[in-house]
Each structure stands twice: as structure tokens, then as C-alpha cells.
Nucleic acid binder design. Structure first.
Lengths: 254, 254
DNA sequence: TCGAAAATTTGGTCCAGATCAAAATAAAAC
DNA sequence: GTTTTATTTTGATCTGGACCAAATTTTCGA
């Protein structure tokens, strides 16, 4: 079988693949580990700016981001791009395509990235013999749904400033989970992409950043952001701006 | 076993349950049919206004709407209600809770409804021996994700009028799939709930309805809607209002 | 069936964010 | 390193939809 040869050749080339490393329950048998290695040991590099998949393409595989950063987007009927998500290492892409066997959005690397490819049919097969793997997959899909609900709530109920703060806090959490700093990170998307995701124009995003910086809540230098105090930000997001301001003025920033 | 007695007692009381009826691949063995009956033969009635589940409750089961109509919503930190979806017969509720084993949103019946309860652990067990059932479940979750992407795109990139048209067309499709009229149906949510879902205030929703009616695209009578011509609506949603208007004025409406 | 409460419509005012414009930076190509 | 191109910032104006208010209609409980 062609897959068997792949398996032996690529046995160890996907060591940071998070499906195995950080998400699976421990206590698996060696056979099971081998099966999972077989499943996920197909990694490849995607250069900044290239597509992992495009809307309309046949669905075969899911992907886990190993390193780098992706955005997904759909096109409005008039051709405008609508960003539907940003995706960091450890996160899964392609889930929306299972229902129709066709991808319904575009996935582009925002920086040079690596992904693990997971043939979906095989995931279902192996999941049948490793229930904890299947259950884990269900959690991943569910998390995606929960996360979408948050995005809908953000778009539907918040003002520009609040949406931007919500995004910053969300990214901060996700970086923290990867073991990176939760207060200093680099945005690898443009203001326009942020705006598209948040339902705002790029000028509004830029102004909101400037305002947050003037208020002493963040520091921005083009792509790099520093969150001065995450709990102030949370306060400020609640519209409880005066509280945040008092705290700020009462303490560090003169 | 208590479930076995349930099973025999309720053998045939879930005949319209769509997981079995309209969604499963045909060609199952009798054993498999029995297993699925066992899985889904737990129906119950939910009165208009009562909760199917609430945020914070432990997750045990998924639910399929058999009849009626539900909304799901989350609460913003300040207590405002943010509607995250409307749910019609055949659709599944509770998917967002798998990831944390806790429900993260509230589900309320908007009219007297019936649901099938599906214990999730059992779904995973039976899915292991009936792969087509499991695959079907994956498609359902995936469809939910794809649908959320649409909602995000609608909120992020459309104006009030377009969002409302998008919702009407979406409901129209879903009613059609249930075998109901795609052009005449009854909204069982309030303007405020529509507004919350679409990121608009109720007054804006009301004005948008009035405007669409004046333009001859729809007819509304409090809760009941009639779509005069679905392709005009689609045109009009594309911002191509003049085309729609020309068509309208050139034909039926004087 | 009637009266109270809830939902909807419609009118007016105001403001957050869109849009238009132009300068200032940063990134990419040569 | 220099030019070119893309991105970001900032300013000025305009507008869609929020917000406030009141009249009207619908729904529902007694």
C-alpha cells in the first residue's frame, strides 16, 4: 500500500503536530499511537500568500496549522472579501467543508507556514477504533462552533472599540496557550483584514488602535502590539471605561 | 435497564424525527435501525417560552427539533441578549457544548415545540458501529460551521436592508426544505429578536420591512411574510436595486 | 369580551463610523 | 541603497442606523 510506505518514510517529521502532542488524552497503546502517526504524518509548507485551499475545491482533508498564521475568507457577491477567521498553530482548518464535500471558503497563509494534512476518510476510520480520538475531534468541531458564536456576538452587539479589544484579548489568549507572551505579540494581518473580520473599515480600525494607545491601554508599532494591562482592557471592553481610566490614572501612567 | 423499557414503550412515537427519517442513508440493517431508534426515541415537548437548556448547565445530550421553533442566545457582559441563531425542525441544538461539557448559550422555544433528545455518549458509541451515522453527524456539525460563516459574513459586510433580505431568503430556503412554502411563512420571532440576530435595533428592522414592502418586494402583516419574487429579492440584496426596480416596474406592479 | 401589557410602526434628532482625501510610513522590488 | 508600491495614519465631511418619543396595533390574561 502506498500509504504504508509514506508512513515509514515520514514517521517522525511532524513532531509538533498538536493533534497528537497537546490535545490527545494520554494512555494510548503503541498500536494506537502508530495509527495516529499514520494519520497525521503528512506535513507540508505553505508560503506566505499562497492558498491552502480555495472555495469550490473538492474536500479531501482537514489541516492542522503547525506553524505560521492563516486567514479564511469568503467572497461577497460583489467581490468584496469577508474574513471569517484567523488561525494559529494547533488549530484545525477545513471543517466547514465536510457538510458538502466542497470547500466554501478560501484559506491563505499570512506568513510562511506549515500544516499537517489529515485525510478525513482516514480520520473517521481510525476514530472508530480509537474512541478518544474521535471524541477529541468532536470537541474540536464544537469549539469552532462556540468560537463562531462569540464572533457573531461581537459583531452583533459591540461597538468598534469593544470589537477591537475583544479581538486583541482573543489573540492574547491563543498566543498564551501556545506558550507565547500574552501581552506582546505581532499582528500578521493588515488593518484592512482586521476590519473585514470585525465588520469595520480599515480607517476605523486604525483610529481605534490610536485611541487605545492614547488611553494608555496598549502600545502599537505598526504590526506589533503590547497590551499594557489585560484586566484594564477587559474593564474597558465592558464599556466601563471610567473605571479603567481611574485605575490607569491612579497608578502607572502619571 | 431503564432505557430498554423506554425503548419498547416509545418505539414509534418519534416518527418525524429527522435524524432517522430524512437524513440517514438508506440500506441499514434491522439491528442498526433498532440501535438508532434506541438512540433517538426520547422525545419531549417544550412549551413556548421555556428553556431547552441554559448557559452553564451540564452538557449531556444533543437535541433535534421535531416541531416548533427555537432561538439560541448568549448574554453580553452587561446583560443584553445576543441572539446567535434560529432553529427549525430537523436542526440540531447543543453542538456548541461538546467542547467544554457545559452549555454556553441559552435555547428557548419560540412556540410550542417538540424535540428528540440524543444522549451524546450513546451517539458516539452507536456511531462507532454505524459509520454512516457518525459521518452524518459530522456533516451536521460542519453545516453548522458553514452556516455560522454565512452569518458572520452577513453581519460583517452587509447593510441593514441586505441583512434582512439575507435572513428572509435563508428562512425561505429552510422552510422549503421542510416542504413548506418558500414564499409565504410566519416569523415567530419578534422584531427585537431579529434585530439582535442581525446586529440592528428593532426600529431599524421595522423600517427595513416597511421599505421592502413599499418597494413591492415583500408583503408583511405583523408576523406573516410573503416574498413577492425571490429572484428580485436576490437582485436587490446584491445592491443592484435599480435592476430589481426596473424589473418590478416593467412587469407586475404597474 | 374586554382591558392591560407587549409589540410594532412612524417621526424626529444625533452620532459612530463610513467615505473621501492626502500625507506619512513601511515593505518590497529592482 | 534607491525607487516603487502597499499600508497606515490623520483630517474633514457625510450618512445609516442608533436613540428618544409617541401613536397604533396585536396579544394575552382575566
Amino acid at each position: 500500500m502506498q500509504q504504508n510506505s509514506n508512513f515509514s518514510r515520514r514517521k517522525n517529521n511532524c513532531s509538533s503536530c498538536s493533534l497528537r502532542e497537546s490535545c490527545l488524552p494520554v494512555g494510548l497503546e503503541e498500536d494506537e499511537i502508530n495509527a495516529i502517526n499514520f494519520l497525521i504524518n503528512r506535513s507540508c509548507k505553505i508560503r506566505r500568500g499562497s492558498y491552502l485551499y480555495q472555495a469550490g475545491m473538492d474536500f479531501q482533508s482537514l489541516y492542522i496549522v503547525r506553524s505560521g498564521f492563516f486567514k479564511t475568507y469568503v467572497l461577497h457577491e460583489d467581490g468584496r472579501e469577508q474574513v471569517t477567521g484567523f488561525h494559529m498553530p494547533g488549530e484545525m482548518l477545513g471543517l466547514e467543508a465536510i457538510s458538502t464535500d466542497v470547500h466554501t471558503c478560501h484559506a491563505v497563509a499570512l506568513e510562511n507556514s506549515e500544516i499537517c494534512k489529515i485525510p478525513f476518510t482516514r480520520l473517521e476510520e481510525i476514530g472508530r477504533v480509537i474512541p478518544s480520538l474521535m471524541h477529541h475531534f468532536h470537541k474540536i468541531m464544537s469549539r469552532e462552533i462556540a468560537h463562531n458564536h462569540e464572533a457573531i456576538a461581537s459583531l452583533g452587539g459591540m461597538k468598534a472599540r469593544e470589537r477591537l479589544i475583544a479581538l486583541l484579548l482573543n489573540l492574547s489568549n491563543r498566543f498564551a496557550k501556545l506558550g507565547h507572551s500574552s501581552s506582546n505579540f505581532s499582528l500578521c494581518m493588515t488593518r484592512e483584514e482586521i476590519g473585514s473580520y470585525l465588520g469595520l473599515k480599515l480607517e476605523t480600525v486604525s483610529r481605534a488602535f490610536s485611541k487605545l494607545q492614547n488611553d494608555g491601554l496598549i502600545k502599537i508599532n505598526s504590526k506589533s502590539v503590547q497590551l499594557n494591562n489585560i484586566s484594564w482592557l477587559k474593564q474597558s471592553k465592558l464599556g466601563n471605561y471610567n473605571v479603567a481610566k481611574e485605575i490607569i490614572e491612579g497608578t502607572e501612567l502619571q
